[in-house]
Write a protein that binds this DNA or RNA. Structure first.
Length: 780
DNA sequence: CAGGCCGTGCTTTTT
DNA sequence: GCACGGCCTG
């Protein structure tokens, strides 16, 4: 029975694993931290470990594997299914897991089990309403920005009351004051709508754990083995969920790579993984350092780059793959030559039969960089796909249909109500809608009920009364007739509301597309019906106590795009560095390795070391996607927001040994930073300092404080009548993007005062600025 | 009440 | 350079 490796059978023999991989797979009890370098077979280790647990007596339902994305969850579930046919192991995203927990314990949090999950547009709509209630200008404070702030607070586990309190102690920041008012009101509005936003799904579970210790313990005991992938990307809320599930049963296995943490900006705390050993006593630490993906040259370059990060756990990456070609820096004149050059290289490789189109990936820091590249690919007739998230479920027609379903399922869903009450047009305008919503709130009844009683509402438009009653009775009737099939329900719904009539007789291509999309939704519903039925048969009772409508809506709100990138589809892939994570390609181009682009301007402006390091990790992630060939590119001149700008050498380029290929001899870019080595030493010495460390000054593009811009100086003077010091003709000024220059001319007065500046780039560009609106700074 | 025009303001993205 | 939002007009 026992084979040389110890236990094992045909399915999970361990011979194909490296020693550290094997160690991770066979570890059973107690906390386990797997630091997995890029291309080190991490997913394989997780799935094999799950199989190993189950084959050694752990019940499949005692295992919980958590990922971030649906894609990762599906892949993992598939591979577990191959190893353990017919067994149900819970592999889920954080959000899906929480949605389910919440459903079962909704009442403990003041929700009903048929709660709705609000997506970003619902959130924005609700915020808009809440803000106008509070008389807050949505022009000055755009709801999506306020929403982003609230989201960030939720990710950081800050509750409305706490924020209000914390804010009262602070003085000054206007934006915070607004958010402090909006946040509690927004939460109240969500509760009234029996709805949660994405962040609430997680936050409510933490609250549940906090307020109902017995529920926490019950879940903790039930999921004896918990696995969390990409642990370096967890934020504070996710961290608390994981901890909550692992107090009593500390069989927690986390995998991740601090060097690939690139989501700090949305609240991910790299600390979570760095401090894992402190959080859990007797942690077994395993490093997966053997890279199976890249050539030695690629790995060497990537490793030399990441070595410059100070805050990291050391890893010694190595590979047994071939030496490979050196990593090259391609230096072009401008973005057009860059794009053409890359297109030509790819075409040549494909024409000669060495490569196929799908071997290539082109990565960039910001989406804007894809434009020039796309044009070139079109010129060369190269097939390509861009990974960008125009999600199926975000399309207006899909959202409309789903909103009907949402409203009949949760008649308090105000966002859904507003979306469909006058669509198709029923003569219930904004005013009538607001009257209905206000009346529902006052009478404490749901939105469908208030529609039936619209007649009783004072000053309600007559036309709207009948329409509202008809609208509500259609939905209530559908609710009664529901026979368990979502597809039938949607069909009836479309028939009775006449929603599709607006496009049915149109010749427009886009209207055809809309109809086709709705058709696709019906197919998805039919598929769901079948799967739901199967699950019922499989389990006797449903695995889950929620009805099909709740489950269907949940799956649509938590599903993102229909797998936007198709592998092996004979096309070149274009994507941001962020979306490249987790993928691999034989040949990778990383575009625009230039100061202010990579590292990004915003990271430099912040002056924070941790932001600079995240940019470095971003490049590291990009580089380690490459299997055979890796090219970094830069230009001398690049169009930025419509203006051509001279570029600056990225600090990252100085951190690696690269072969530099100049496509064209052209203008010399500013010399590499001579003080670099010294700076690095200084930075290293500071490594033990706290988090908010800033990097040494010369990194900052603009050494002068913001208060010194012409705009600020002008606004600071009485009425702005005088010319601010430092802007006389002939004085030297600096512009954050254009660089330094000399004032040629001054015109106008007060807010209309303009200055014309000749910059010191090679064409001596002349630019005229409105002094009160530009970031020009005087020098000296 | 919808459509067009003007001004503004700009990373990265999942759920 | 472009996209989105707000405001104004037909």
């Amino acid at each position: 029975m026992a084979c040389p490796e110890g236990v094992g059978n045909r399915v999970t023999g361990l011979r194909d694993l490296t020693p550290p991989q094997k160690e991770a797979v066979t570890h059973v009890d107690g906390p386990l931290l797997v630091l997995a370098g890029p291309g080190s077979g991490k997913t394989r280790v997780i799935t094999r470990r799950i199989a190993h647990l189950v084959q050694h007596g752990v019940n499949p339902w005692e295992v919980l594997a958590i990922t971030f994305t649906n894609k990762a969850a599906n892949e993992m579930a598939e591979r577990v299914q191959e190893l353990l046919p017919g067994m149900r192991v819970w592999v889920s995203t954080f959000h899906r897991f929480c949605a389910r927990v919440l459903r079962q314990h909704a009442s403990a949090l003041g929700l009903q089990p048929n709660y709705t999950i609000f997506d970003m547009s619902d959130q924005r709509q609700l915020l808009r309403a809440v803000m106008s209630d509070l008389d807050i200008s949505t022009t000055h404070f755009p709801p999506h920005k306020v929403g982003a702030r609230i989201s960030r607070l939720k990710n950081d586990l800050v509750l409305p009351e706490e924020y209000l309190q914390r804010h009262e102690e602070m003085v000054g920041n206007h934006y915070d004051a607004i958010v402090a008012r909006v946040y509690p009101a927004y939460q109240q509005a969500l509760l009234r709508a029996n709805a949660v936003d994405f962040d609430d799904l997680l936050l409510h579970v933490v609250r549940l754990f906090d307020e109902c210790p017995e529920i926490r313990e019950q879940l903790d005991r039930r999921f004896r083995y918990v696995l969390v992938d990409e642990y370096q990307d967890t934020n504070l809320v996710q961290y608390m969920i994981v901890r909550g599930l692992c107090c009593n049963e500390q069989n927690l296995c986390v995998t991740g790579d601090p060097d690939q943490s690139i989501y700090g900006w949305r609240g991910a705390r790299i600390k979570n993984i760095l401090q894992f050993e402190e959080d859990f006593a007797d942690t077994r630490l395993i490093r997966l350092e053997h890279n199976f993906r890249s050539t030695k040259e690629i790995l060497k370059a990537a490793d030399s780059l990441i070595q410059h990060n100070v805050k990291r756990l050391h890893k010694e990456l190595f590979t047994e793959n071939e030496e490979g070609a050196p990593v090259e820096l391609l230096w072009f004149d401008d973005e057009r030559t860059e794009a053409d050059g890359i297109a030509q290289m790819m075409k040549q490789a494909v024409d000669s039969g060495d490569r196929t189109w799908s071997d290539f990936a082109i990565c960039y820091r910001t989406n804007a960089l894809s434009r020039a590249m796309e044009r070139a690919l079109a010129r060369y007739s190269i097939p390509y796909q861009v990974a960008s998230g125009v999600a199926f479920y975000d399309r207006a027609e899909i959202k409309d249909v789903l909103s009907y379903l949402r409203l009949l399922h949760n008649p308090n869903d105000v966002a859904a109500f507003q979306r469909v009450i006058n669509n198709p047009l029923r003569g219930i305008g904004k005013t009538s809608q607001n009257r209905l919503i206000a009346a529902a709130r006052e009478d404490n009844v749901n939105l469908l009920e208030i529609c039936l009683r619209a007649k009783e509402i004072p000053r309600m438009a007559k036309r709207g009364v009948g329409a509202a009653r008809k609208f509500a009775s259609i939905l209530l009737n559908l609710q009664d007739k529901f026979d368990g099939s979502i597809e039938n329900l949607l069909q009836d719904l479309l028939g009775q509301t006449g929603y599709l009539d607006q496009w049915k007789y149109s010749d427009l291509e886009e209207d055809h597309e809309r109809l086709a999309n709705v058709e696709e939704l019906l197919t998805a519903a039919a598929q769901f019906d079948r799967a739901y039925e199967e699950e019922l048969e499989d389990n006797g009772e449903a695995l889950d106590d929620a009805g099909p409508i709740q489950r269907f809506l949940e799956s649509t709100s938590l599903a993102s795009e229909v797998d936007s990138l198709e592998s092996a589809s004979g096309q070149v892939s274009l994507m941001t560095l962020h979306s490249a994570k987790g993928l691999e390609f034989p040949v990778v181009f990383v575009l625009g390795v230039e100061q202010n682009l990579l590292p990004h301007e915003r990271a430099l402006e912040s002056g924070e070391l941790k932001e600079l390091e995240e940019e470095r990790r971003l490049l590291f992630v990009g580089m380690t996607r490459a299997q055979k060939m890796l090219y970094l590119t830069r230009t001398s001149q690049r169009e930025f927001r419509g203006r051509p700008l001279s570029t600056i050498t990225s600090v990252f380029l100085n951190e690696m040994d690269l072969t530099i290929t100049r496509e064209n001899e052209s203008t010399q870019s500013p010399a590499p930073d001579l003080e670099w080595k010294q700076l690095l030493e200084k930075t290293r010495k500071r490594r033990d300092d706290n988090d908010d460390e800033s990097f040494p000054q010369p990194f900052k593009q603009f050494g002068l404080p913001k208060m010194m811009t012409g705009a600020d100086l002008l606004n600071g003077t009485a009425g702005g009548k005088e010319l601010p010091v430092g802007f006389a003709v002939g004085s030297r000024v600096r512009h954050p993007r254009m660089g330094t220059g000399t004032v040629l001319k001054v015109d106008g007065f007060g807010a209309r005062r303009t200055v014309t500046v000749e910059f010191e780039d090679e064409d001596a560009t002349e630019e005229t600025f409105i002094l009160s609106k530009c970031p020009l700074q005087p020098i000296g």
